[in-house]
Nucleic acid binder design. Sequence first.
DNA 1: TATTGTTATACTCTATAACTATA
DNA 2: TATAGTTATAGAGTATAACAATA
Lengths: 159, 159
Amino acid sequence: MAGQVNPLQAGLQEPDKTSDLEAFVGYNLKRAYIVMQNDFRKALGQDGPSARVFSALSLTVQFPNITQSMLARKLGIERSGLVAIIDELEQLGHLKRTHVPGDRRVQALVPTEAGVAAYQSAVQSVRAHEASILAHLDKKEITMLNVLLKKIRIQGEDS
Amino acid sequence: MAGQVNPLQAGLQEPDKTSDLEAFVGYNLKRAYIVMQNDFRKALGQDGPSARVFSALSLTVQFPNITQSMLARKLGIERSGLVAIIDELEQLGHLKRTHVPGDRRVQALVPTEAGVAAYQSAVQSVRAHEASILAHLDKKEITMLNVLLKKIRIQGEDS
DNA sequence: TATTGTTATACTCTATAACTATA
DNA sequence: TATAGTTATAGAGTATAACAATA
């Protein structure tokens, strides 16, 4: 028996001890992000848009005639990655790729009526999802959280 | 020209206008998470551990003889997903899978001396990375951020 | 019957590199 | 030369389902 260690006497003994990891913002950020993402999917349903499709549709509705390059830049992803997202939205009839006079390379994105309606419906679901998952946070905390998260993002975009 | 819209007069006209998306915690969380993740990789280097390997090593060092199932539960991932992570750490010589008397199904994870040293070195890099990327946040803000992120995680684990 | 570790498999999200057509 | 959109491809990271060994 000497030298043998039963996990019930080691790891299991302190199963709820706070882990060192929880001192790291990165770890807490990842765990919270996964929770939000899973709940987003559950709230929007199988037929609803994924988070990335929702965000692309949102910007297209808010900035009609935005180009794909501009949209990719705003979303912080590569142009190549946006193609499939726009394909999906176009197939759903939520937006159209339109040619622009003066520069035949670019394709401006124009939301359709159905696209605007789909967005407005989705926004309500997303708001409900956030209200539910953030139920234990008050308004000030949510504002603070958004401010702090944006500070991280800005710092990352600078460097 | 009638009905034609130049993107320079539409989307491009207000390129820095705050997007509706930025009102959503989920969106800000995702963007901040990506920033942290990218900087983590850059800070730890190509030879350094990925975030998920680092977190598994951290818990193994802190809770020696933890089992894979317990570790997966703590990390919030599936057992199956942990196998490759533990494989990698074992191949690096940072931990060993050991048999446990009394239950021949489980394999307790024991960090090696090299594993503990590697962890301590990695922790310093992670601390430096967080200090750098969170340079614009003071201590109180970081504490607040961790508290708020944990609230989201708890809420998600409950539901 | 239930649990541990494992394998096989597939899916989501993303990046890189190279191509085309334009500028 | 540079840019916009595209394609092909690969790599993380994760989940689900099924399996063998063991409880």
